[in-house]
Design a protein around this nucleic acid. Structure first.
Lengths: 233, 233
DNA sequence: CCGTATTTGTCCGTATGTATG
DNA sequence: ACATACATACGGACAAATACG
C-alpha cells in the first residue's frame, strides 16, 4: 500500500487538490522535505500518482498558509522562519490566546469549564508520574480545546495558522515545554481565572502563558548561539 | 486596450498566476462579481486572455486568503461573511490593532511619531472643511502606516487579511466612519499615547478605536434590520 | 561564457460530475 | 425521473526559463 493508493482511497470525498494540500502539508510539517529546500513538482506528482496540476494548486494554497514560498520560475521553497519572525509569531499568538482566554471567561459554559478542569487533572497526573509521552498530546489538546471553545472561529483559524508556521522554525525543539510543573501551574491559573468568570485575569493568565514560552525560546536560542559561536556582539 | 493586454504588459515581472491572483482579488473587492455568486473559470480565463490553469491556481490562493470558497465539483463562490463573522473579525482586529499601538509606543522612532502627527493634522484639516473625499484615503493611509510601523510584519499581514475579508461584508457601507470629528479625537488620543511612550494607554486607545467601529457596525445593522423587517426577536 | 539538461509555466483535450429543462 | 448542456477536474504536451557542467 503506497501513498498513491491512500490518496485514491480518500478521494471521492474531497477534490484531489484538497487531499494533496493536506498530504503535502503533513509531509512538510513532518519534516520529510528538508526545510529551506526546493520542492520538486514532478517528484510530488509521481509520489502521489497524480499529474502536476493538482500539485501546483495545492502548493498555491500552502503559500497562502505561509508554509511555502513561491518564487517565479524558480520553484517553491519550504519557508523557514528566522528567530525574528518566530518572535513576531509568538507576539501575535500571545495577544490572540490572551483574547481567547478573555472570551472564555465571558462565555464558557459550565460543561466547558468542567472539561478544562478534566484536562488539567489529567495533565497534573501525567506530570506527577513524569509521563512526558502522554503529557505532550494532552497539552496540545488542552490548548486546542481552549481555542475552539472561545467562540471565535476567525481567531481560532488565525491561531492555528500561526502554530503551523512555528513548526517550521528550526529551533522549535529547544522549547518543548518549560518543565511540567511550571507549565501546569500556569494552566491552573488559566482555568481558575476562567472558572472565576474574571475576563481580565483570564486574559492575563493566557497571554502570559504564551509569553513565557516565547521568553524560554529566546533564552534557549541565545544560549545555543552563545555556545555554538561565542562571538561577542 | 483590454484587460488581457494589461496582464500581458505586467507579465515578465510576475508569474501569470500571481498577476491573476491580484487582478481577481481586485475584481472581487471592487464588487464586480456579485457576492455569494459563483465565479466562472472560463469567463475569467477568456477575460484575462489566459487558459484556465493559472486561473485555478489564483483562485486556490484566494481561498487561502478567505476571499472565496471552493466547493469540489461545484465551483468557487465569493465568500460573504454574515454579521456574526464580521463581529468575530472586528474582535480580532481590535486586539491586533491594540497590540500594534502598544508596540508603536514602545518602539516608534521620532520620525514615525512626526509622521503620525502629520497624518493627524491633514485629517483634521480635511475634517474641518468637510472634505470627505480626501479624508477617507488619508484615514486609510494612517491606519496602514500604523500597522506597517509597529515592527511586526506577521501582525501586519494578518491584519490586512482581516480587513480584506471585511470588505466582503455586505453591510460594510453602513459603517463608513462615525463622524469625522469623533474619529479624529480618537486618532489624536492614539497618537498622543504613542508620543507619550505609554504602551498601555496606546494599546487601549488603538483597541477602543476599532472596538467603537465594531459597535457602530452592530448598531447600524440592528437598526437596518429593524427598519427592514420589524420582527421582534 | 556557452550549451545542455532539468524544471517550471502555460495551454488544451478529455472525462466526470452537477444543474436544468 | 431522464436526458441534455455545461462547468469543473484532471492529465498530458509544449514552450520558456533557470541551473549546471
Amino acid at each position: 500500500m503506497n501513498a498513491a493508493d491512500d490518496v485514491l482511497t480518500i478521494l471521492r470525498t474531497r477534490s484531489l487538490s484538497g487531499v494533496l494540500e493536506r498530504e503535502i502539508e503533513k509531509a512538510i510539517l513532518a519534516g520529510e522535505i528538508p526545510a529551506g529546500k526546493r520542492v520538486n513538482e514532478n517528484l510530488l506528482a509521481t509520489r502521489f500518482g497524480t499529474s502536476r496540476g493538482p500539485v501546483r494548486e495545492a502548493l498555491r494554497a500552502l503559500e497562502g498558509l505561509g508554509l511555502v514560498e513561491l518564487i517565479p520560475n524558480r520553484g517553491v521553497f519550504i519557508r523557514q522562519p528566522e528567530l525574528e519572525e518566530a518572535i513576531e509569531i509568538y507576539d501575535v499568538r500571545t495577544v490572540l490566546f490572551g483574547h481567547a482566554g478573555k472570551l472564555l471567561a465571558e462565555r464558557a459554559t459550565e460543561t466547558v469549564i468542567a472539561r478544562l478542569r478534566d484536562y488539567l487533572e489529567q495533565m497534573e497526573a501525567a506530570a506527577r508520574s513524569r509521563d512526558f509521552d502522554s503529557y505532550y498530546p494532552l497539552n496540545l489538546a488542552f490548548h486546542e480545546f481552549i481555542i475552539d471553545s472561545c467562540g471565535n472561529a476567525t481567531l481560532a483559524a488565525q491561531y492555528r495558522g500561526l502554530v503551523k508556521k512555528l513548526h517550521l522554525f528550526r529551533a522549535r525543539s529547544l522549547v518543548q515545554g518549560g518543565g511540567l510543573e511550571v507549565s501546569n501551574s500556569e494552566h491552573r491559573e488559566m482555568v481558575d481565572a476562567v472558572a472565576a468568570r474574571d475576563p481580565e485575569r483570564a486574559q492575563r493568565a493566557h497571554a502570559e502563558h504564551v509569553a513565557r514560552a516565547k521568553a524560554r525560546l529566546i533564552a534557549a536560542c541565545r544560549k545555543a548561539a552563545g555556545e555554538a559561536q561565542p562571538q561577542p556582539n
